[in-house]
Amino acid sequence: MALRAVDFLPRSAEEALALEDYEGCAPRWCTGCGDLGILTAVQRLLRDEQLPLEKVVFVSGIGCSSRFPHYMGTYGFHGLHGRALPVAEGIKMRRPDLHVFVNTGDGDCCSIGAAHWLHAARYNMDMTVMMHDNNIYGLTKKQASPTSPQGTRSNTTPRGSDLAAFDPLIATLGMSNLSFVAQAADWIPELLYKIISLAFHHHGFSFIRILQRCPEFLPDHFEPWVQDPDRMLILTHEDGVQMSTALSSVYRQTADHDPMDLIQARELVGTSERIPVGILYRNPDVPCYEDLRRSRQLQTPAMVSAGLEEELDKFTIWPMV
């Protein structure tokens, strides 16, 4: 048995990656956009974890939030509308050594990509999924999305939307084989960072709904919650998030919630008048699909090469003899 050292040691102080090392292109989001805070929280996480750039991949669908991979200095895949999750699953299945992150929006995930979302949660593959929920289609200049509150006036609903808003948390907490669900808000960066960090460290499908302000098309939509911290309910637990002293002096409404308690999680998202922020549900014992189905066959470089050759040979025009 010959073993090959392939990875780097913990990097020395001189080599440590800074937050800037994780930056890609300059963000083109609108000034004031909540996506900027989410981007910063993710870059901080990668910096603090010192993840090698080549070991991280961000996958997205279509929408404002799905521009995320462009703004990261890691690998990225800007995919088709609603199809971020199956792409991410393919990556994880083939390259389990990569840290897979998915950025999707309320339209991308809850509308055209809803079927993939349902099964991705059930497959429970190890990835961190951030659903940027601004309650509107922003990239296409303001159309109602599934999570737009009833009465939202938009280009497609000029008299106000007719249907009650779709609640992605209620939907997720009803899915089978679930292992991690959380809710964060872009305007509470400390908790946003901690929740993404806990999701990253969870082995399985970690779904975070992130309430995200859109200052351009729904500028006042989240204002009541931004301006009145007492309208937020912070879910704290020794196995969940804890607030710093400074933050707890701002956000005073807290609830002790055990992330293992799924029934209580459903009650919280279904009945609470306040917006709950924190870890709603976490079950580390749910098996991951890639662990169940990964091929045990030795995948040597020679075998991979031979397989590729075989596939490519199908398209080869052989010379006449």
Binding site: A246, T254, A255, S272
Partner: peptide, 18 residues
Amino acid sequence: GQAGVAQTAGTEEAEEQS
């Protein structure tokens, strides 16, 4: 508290500790 969850509001004690 609500839904069987122990909810707490900020207290004077917390203010003193701030």
